[in-house]
C-alpha cells in the first residue's frame, strides 16, 4: 500500500535514534582531541631516524650512505656526509650524517627510503599531528627532530622492530664470532711465536687484531639492555 515504506523507514530511524542513547556499540564516534584510538601497527606517516641508547647523536644508526637520498622519488631527503668516522653498532668505523634533513611538505610517505636502507636506520613514524604555522622551516625536519629512540620504534611498530633487532643481533653475533675466532687464531699464533722467540714481525699483527673485540665491547655499552631481544 502507498506509504507503508515510509512508515517502515520512520520505524527504522526511530530505532536508531533511541538505540543510540541506549547501546554504546551504535555510537562509534571517537571525540578526537580528547579521545583517541591507538594507531594501527602498520600505519605510516613520515620517516624518522632510529638511534640506539639514550644519546641520539652517539647512537644514530645512519651511516650517511645516501642510498635513501638517491632513491627518494620526490627528492625530499638532504644528507651531508661527515668528514670523520665513528664506530657503528658492530664497531666498524663509519661516517655519520653531519646533516640529515627531510622536507615533509615534499615527502609522499612512500616508504622507499625505509625499504632501501641497509642499516635499519630510517623507519616510518605514526605521528600525524604535524600542523605548524611555519610552512617552510617548520616542515623541514633536521636530524635532531627526526631522531627517535629504538624504544619508541618498539612502541609504535612492535612486530617489525623485534624482527629488526633480531636481525641486527644476529649480524653482530656473527661479527663478534668472527672477531673472536680471529683473536683466538692470533693468540694461538702469538703463543706459537712465544715458543719460537725469534719472530718480531708477528707481534704487530696480533696487536692489530686485538682492536676488533675492544670496539665490540664499546658498542655493547652504548646499546640498551633489551636491545637484542
Amino acid at each position: 500500500m502507498l506509504g507503508d515504506g515510509i512508515l517502515k523507514g520512520m520505524a527504522e530511524t526511530a530505532r536508531n535514534f533511541f538505540g543510540s542513547y541506549v547501546s554504546k556499540e551504535r555510537l562509534t564516534t571517537v571525540e578526537y582531541p580528547e579521545q583517541r584510538i591507538p594507531t594501527a601497527e602498520n600505519a605510516r606517516v613520515f620517516p624518522f631516524l632510529v638511534y640506539d641508547g639514550t644519546d641520539w647523536e652517539a647512537g644514530m644508526r645512519c651511516v650517511a650512505c645516501q642510498i635513501c637520498e638517491k632513491e627518494c622519488p620526490p627528492k625530499c631527503i638532504y644528507i651531508d656526509k661527515s668528514t670523520d668516522k665513528k664506530p657503528d653498532y658492530v664497531g666498524k668505523p663509519q661516517f655519520y650524517p653531519a646533516r640529515f634533513d627531510i622536507d615533509i611538505s615534499v615527502c609522499m610517505s612512500c616508504q622507499i627510503c625505509v625499504e632501501v636502507c641497509p642499516f635499519e636506520a630510517i623507519k616510518m613514524d605514526t605521528q600525524f599531528e604535524l600542523a605548524t604555522d611555519d610552512r617552510f622551516g617548520g616542515l623541514l625536519y633536521d636530524r635532531k627532530e627526526l631522531s627517535r629512540s629504538n624504544e619508541y620504534y618498539h612502541a609504535i611498530h612492535p612486530t617489525e622492530a623485534a624482527e629488526v633487532d633480531a636481525r641486527l643481533a644476529e649480524e653482530k653475533a656473527k661479527v663478534e664470532a668472527k672477531a673472536k675466532a680471529a683473536a683466538e687464531a692470533a693468540a694461538a699464533k702469538a703463543a706459537a711465536a712465544a715458543t719460537q722467540p725469534a719472530a718480531p714481525a708477528k707481534a704487530d699483527s696480533s696487536g692489530l687484531a686485538a682492536t676488533a673485540p675492544e670496539a665490540a665491547s664499546l658498542t655493547d655499552a652504548t646499546k640498551p639492555a633489551g636491545g637484542g631481544s
Partner: peptide, 12 residues
C-alpha cells in the same frame, strides 16, 4: 536529533 538518527553525537 539528526545526529542520533545517524548514530552520531551531533554538535556538542
Amino acid at each position: 536529533g539528526l545526529g542520533r538518527i545517524q548514530n552520531r553525537l551531533g554538535p556538542n
